[in-house]
Design a protein around this nucleic acid. Structure first.
Lengths: 316, 316
DNA sequence: AACAAATACGTAAGCGCTAACGTATCTCTG
DNA sequence: CAGAGATACGTTAGCGCTTACGTATTTGTT
């Protein structure tokens, strides 16, 4: 599922899909069991069933919809003979919704069905059903306290106001070198032995052989890294590029790449290559834009299992 | 929020509401930041951005929608100048969607916005955002393997085929007496000292003073209980009624109530009363139907903090 | 008591999506 | 190679909901 890869960017779409799925399942159940009810009716009917005759606005507030939605749904329920509209004698504006006898009878019969729904959901989703419900509830509460749009705008303002710098390696940044690379390695592949060695001791494996390491720093935070490894005299490998997932999109990767290429030229390098994996679309596109050219086959004698892409830098 | 009380019955509605919330928040952000994009476009645009020109069906499959939806959305994107339709030279049926230069430019500018979205969501929802994402993913997977509608129908068939019996107290059922009552006590109130004592030793507190305890048994499973407590000679209290939340709707409560009332008559009781709480709507309605009449004030000298309803049995 | 403001609710138009259908094109089979 | 079936995709109608608006009624203010 592609949407999963978008993470928090596509929450709306995924929730919608899940929502439709549950509505559909409920309707399928009601239909095959011959219950004369639709899944969309349930909140209104159950509310009237639980709390007795109520006005349109009251129902709307309880089930979290607009009064228009309830009003239109009421039209349908009236047509289906489940609800009657009554004028409130105490307040002529209000229209009180009352369940008909037919509705009471229908709902009374639905007890076992609802029981089956609860148990079926539990059986199908196992413990995930409860986790989903908990998460929904927690999010509903959190959103009321801290509206997400506001929080996003604040973050955007902060990001825009914070300078993005590229800084060279310093011993106290070593842990970031590990962290930033472990993130994508664990996510897409697994950390190979050669990775662990290099990430734990970059000074020995990268700097000593005549390489360089850069970090992208947003304000005080280290959000990305990239290394230039001298493989043999004049031959450099671009490697260990990693940008914190939550900070993608700020151009840190591009800036790091530029820094490495500049360093490569500064050292009068002859060849600059890189190895990567075809699943890392965005990274590959970035390499291409920076001047790397895809080679027809993988690099002979590659150190990495995951490497199925081989690119060489050909400045235009 | 009323929907929360429906639990798994209203999953669809709650997911829809959350979904709309996120879509709305995203649109608000895009608008105030002047981005010429709408939240609903994102899956399609990002997919084309990530994987290059693609056919309608391909996009639809990736983002989990129908080809019609993608086709119609494409109309809008074409009108907005973000996408071009191109015939696939290799297959005349296919219409390949290609991002325009304008779209590339717009999307390139959106990097920081998406970064802000991810971080804003995290800030607003804190750790719940990840929990929600995990739960969604787990449910998506589970639903593919075990369709929920099917599971519900199976449960329904099982429930319908399993007899519901009312059985009297037996020592080996004591733990169920505690479990079933603790469930609703913990959910709505808290367990008072008097509850703990009675629930742990019902033989001493209920049976010895001349009371009775019944259990509702569905097949092999104990799903509900109810007790008749002799308060003084001929005066009985209906108490400790509890039905497993996942088995509500099968009529177990009603059957238990009938059993208690029958027992009350069998013992030639004079008075039968109960104390309850106004929040327990469904229970109160059941008591009323069974012949209990709401009294104008709480019972003098009640044992319970939570009791704000007092009813006396008046057979018709 | 008079009247502006607020409230309750219905209606209309529109949006995003689906299901159903029609058409064009491709693929497979004999 | 003909033709049946499959596939790709656009179009239409309709559903569920929203926003915007209009009307009736109540509430609050002076």
């Amino acid at each position: 599922m592609y949407l999963a890869s978008l993470g928090k960017l596509a929450l709306g779409s995924r929730l919608k899909a899940l929502s439709d799925h549950f509505y559909g399942a409920a309707d399928e159940v009601y239909q095959t069991l011959g219950a004369r009810i639709e899944s969309r009716w349930l909140p209104v009917l159950r509310y009237l069933w639980d709390t007795g005759p109520s006005s349109v606005t009251e129902v709307a507030a309880a089930i979290g919809q607009t009064h228009s939605a309830v009003s239109q749904l009421t039209d349908k329920l009236v047509r289906a003979g489940m609800v009657r509209r009554r004028r409130d004698p105490a307040d002529g504006r209000r229209s009180v919704l009352v369940l008909t006898d037919k509705a009471h009878a229908s709902l009374a019969e639905l007890g076992p069905v609802w029981c089956a729904v609860r148990r079926g959901v539990s059986r199908s989703l196992e413990e995930h059903a409860l986790r989903l419900l908990d998460a929904i509830e927690a999010c509903e509460r959190a959103l009321q306290e801290r509206p997400v749009a506001e929080a996003i705008l604040v973050e955007h303002a902060v990001i825009k106001a914070t300078p993005l710098q590229i800084v060279p390696y310093a011993p106290e940044l070593r842990e970031h070198f590990y962290r930033l690379n472990a993130q994508w390695l664990e996510r897409y592949f697994r950390i190979e032995d050669i990775d662990r060695a290099v990430l734990n001791d970059p000074e020995h494996y990268i700097l000593q052989p005549g390489g360089a390491i850069f970090f992208a720093q947003l304000g005080e935070e280290i959000i990305g890294t990239c290394a230039l490894l001298q493989e043999s005299p004049g031959v450099f490998e671009l490697t260990k590029m990693g940008v914190d997932e939550t900070f993608r999109g700020l151009g840190a990767g591009k800036r790091l790449l530029e820094a490495c290429i500049a360093e490569f030229h500064r050292r009068d390098g002859q060849t600059l290559f890189l190895e990567s994996n075809s699943r890392l679309n965005t990274a590959l596109r970035m390499y291409e834009k920076a001047g790397f050219v895809l080679q027809p086959s993988v690099r002979p004698g590659s150190h990495y299992e995951r490497a199925d892409v081989y690119m060489i830098y050909k400045p235009r």
